[in-house]
Design a binder for these strands. Sequence first.
DNA 1: ATATAACTAGGGGAAACCCCTAAAATATGA
DNA 2: TCATATTTTAGGGGTTTCCCCTAGTTATAT
Lengths: 215, 215
Amino acid sequence: MIKIAIADDHTMFVDGIESILQKEDDMEVVGRCFDGEEVIHFLKSNTIDILLLDVNLPKMNGIEVCEKTLAKYPNVKILAISMFNEESYVSEILNKGALGYILKNTGRVELIKAIKTVNTGKSYFSKEVTQTIMNGLLKQRKKSQNKKAFYPKISKREKEVLALIIQEHTTQEIAGKLFISLKTVESHRSSLLAKMNARNTAGLVRIALEHKMLE
Amino acid sequence: MIKIAIADDHTMFVDGIESILQKEDDMEVVGRCFDGEEVIHFLKSNTIDILLLDVNLPKMNGIEVCEKTLAKYPNVKILAISMFNEESYVSEILNKGALGYILKNTGRVELIKAIKTVNTGKSYFSKEVTQTIMNGLLKQRKKSQNKKAFYPKISKREKEVLALIIQEHTTQEIAGKLFISLKTVESHRSSLLAKMNARNTAGLVRIALEHKMLE
DNA sequence: ATATAACTAGGGGAAACCCCTAAAATATGA
DNA sequence: TCATATTTTAGGGGTTTCCCCTAGTTATAT
């Protein structure tokens, strides 16, 4: 028996889901919460398998609820439900550990499927949401690609030095590892600063990591 | 008219695609390449809109071809085609700028749709591929989530200092910005090094970025 | 063949790092 | 609520690293 709690501030919506799930004989709705704080409180005295969580909740929003819930009860599977197919929402709540994300216009067949999938520990996204995530992913790739193309001209030796810097080695250690003088390493560092337009080591590391210049 | 080139080392497959595309009166196959080097050579004397690119090509694999092609001809839209729904393949070729990825068992209707979608500059993935990418994404999220939980105890002030360090500000500048003494900032830096288990600024920045400790 | 870039290296000064102490302000917990 | 812990503040003083400048030698490419 899959124990389910529903968290949504619209009574009719909660009732609707509940009536759908009542027809499933391996599912049981054991809790209803109408705001975020209620969820936290409810879980203190109840065990559930799945939390159907609206992203826009009063008092404490779904993203926060998701984070807090999983921090205390990592075995709860969270299926996010939202009116909005917004990339920022989707991305945030997934980062907090939600396993799935479906929209409120999802039909009963898909809802059941989503719950069953999530219950096995797998992720589930409705196809509109999938599209949204993929678009976001593509944007990121394009961004980091552009950036990457901007700083290509780092020599082999400089790359070695850069890698060792990022691994927290001091200039002296790098000199030892590469069998060159300390002053030579310092010289490479200067070239790196100039080429990468960095003011100091911090910038060097940040730019190198942002642009994925290693590998 | 959409000008298309096909790059695949299996003649029958190339012929198959071509016969499908012949029936479309807004598409024209203008080139056939049977290995990677041929593609590069072909593009020197021909202009195309879309390159249907097999990931596993002789002489030069699809990933490399993709990179080289887009470096010279950024307007070419690349639709990757592969036997394998392997996350590493998909991820790599998308990073190199391919717009879409479909499998070789794709039917003609979907192939046409994919080409038309990619031709407008949008991305297209068959649903199996989408699933693969999403799984990869989820794995990554779980990883970075674990890491994040490991270093939580950085105070508000320390976070401010850390952020300014990463923005390449010197200790003196940070002191000025926060209206505190240089020695205080040094003190915060020391605490940061200790808390984050870093040996120096480079490590500080790397760890902070890896674990996304800002925001 | 001759620039251009890469690798090497040193001098000098500034900045960061490291050890310490220490007081006031806040948070936390029992 | 009161004691304890953490955070934020700040300094002294010495060591190391970093950064800038110059400069010679070797690859690399056009």
